[in-house]
């Protein structure tokens, strides 16, 4: 991963009209506070020393999913050319938490951004061969044009924000 790759990723997010913010592990809570409104649900991040603030409900119920304004999850990979994040389905519920809220906040380590699909699929091949069962290549919010014009937010989030964790 080079600074060029990060810049390309940011350009792609810009094109998709997806917001992004850089944050340090210490600054994450403040960044999330600025992005999310109650109720916010989340899944604990798999990064050492990086915790979600207490006000994020990390043990949601189906009712919480239904009511959530925002869902905060880790993203396993960023794909620079496309501005995509890879959302891994895990037993602790990343898939539903990233899907039901109006806003999905994807927290991504800067070092996990790869240039393009060839690198992404090398990584994904390894993931699936080692037993992981689900990965969504998510690019921007959910959308549909089925009702006569492009509308953001069909069944999934209406908005996506990527927080890039600087290390």
């Amino acid at each position: 991963m080079s600074t060029g790759t990060v810049a390309t990723f940011e350009d792609s997010l810009e094109r998709l009209e997806v917001g992004w913010t850089h944050a340090s592990s210490d600054g994450l809570a403040d960044v999330l506070e600025g992005l999310c409104s109650d109720p916010t649900i989340g899944v604990d991040l798999p990064y050492d020393g990086v915790d979600l603030p207490d006000w994020v409900n990390t043990d949601p119920t189906p009712a919480d999913l239904r009511e959530a304004n925002a869902g905060v999850t880790a993203a396993g990979l960023g794909i620079a050319d496309y501005g995509s994040v890879v959302v891994q389905g895990t037993p602790d519920g990343i898939e539903p938490v990233s899907l039901f809220g109006d806003l999905h906040v994807a927290v991504l380590r800067q070092s996990d951004i790869v240039p393009g699909m060839p690198e992404a699929f090398d990584w994904l091949g390894e993931e699936f061969r080692t037993g992981h069962s689900s990965a969504i290549i998510a690019t921007g919010p959910s959308a549909t044009a089925d009702m006569g014009a492009l509308v953001k937010g069909a069944h999934g989030p209406k908005e996506v924000h990527v927080v890039i964790l600087d290390e």
Binding site: G89, T90, P91, D92, G93, I94, E95, P96, L124, F128, H132, S133, S134, A135, I136, I137
Partner: peptide, 10 residues
Amino acid sequence: SLLTPPVESP
């Protein structure tokens, strides 16, 4: 969506 069902998601 890349899924190897049955998936681990709850």
